[in-house]
Amino acid sequence: MSIDLKNIQSGYDGFRLKDVSLQIARDSLTVLIGPNGCGKSTLLKTISRELHPRGGRVLLDSKDVTQQRSKLVARQISVLPQHPVVPPGITVEQLVGYGRAPYQNLLGLRSSEDRLRVEDALEIVDLSPLKDKLVSALSGGQRQRAFVAMCIAQDTPYVLFDEPTSFLDIRYQYEVLDLMATLHEQGKTVVAVLHDIAQAARYATDLVVMKDAQVRAVGKPTDIITEDMLSAVYGIDARVYADPVTGTPAVSAL
């Protein structure tokens, strides 16, 4: 059970991943890091099917995702996009309810199970009291939690987070990261793109380092975050030390 990327070439006009192969193990919390423009978000968007690979295959539990019915894949993988769209005039509960779409027919009629899942998801992200508020009226941190709740309601074994902490101040960053860790503890496989190396090291069970549209290194945070890697991948001189709170690697640039 895993997500397997085989020789993936996908991207935009001027950018393409160079034959990326990678295995994301079931039950891992895998974090992709790397400098801007290294292709980590492209890789995540390929897994989430937002981008079609121009070469190579994405295998979900050894079946090609493009060969399966879209709805069935949607019951396996949920996504928190980098820039979630806030629809006008939609309440928190309605938004979270959209997470049930893969289990509904095209008219979107809700079953009692759908309702239960939505209630649970709201409970987990602590938004139950705000469920009748408009999503557009929420603060940035609350919005992000509402979109996470939508992923939870989708009830998938794999959850993808594309830069979930961008544009949030530090309190809400940790709020979202802790939610990510909670989902992982509950048995979901989490794949995330993060910018902050210390945060990545603190939360990840597995790190994937990318540079120039390729995977440079894969492994445990303590093995991966080294001064040599930082200079080779990010081009900085830096010291790596154990974070006094968590003991995981942290970085200070010289």
């Binding site: 937002e50 019915r69 879209s70 996504v79 769209v85 779409a101 979107g108």
Partner: peptide, 23 residues
């Protein structure tokens, strides 16, 4: 009118609508 739910999902953007199983 039969497309109203699909319009809801499309309104969430391509990334989200795709991941919810919509073509």
């Amino acid at each position: 009118l039969l497309y109203s739910y699909r319009l809801d999902l499309i309104r969430l953007g391509t990334a989200q609508a795709t991941s919810l199983g919509l073509n």
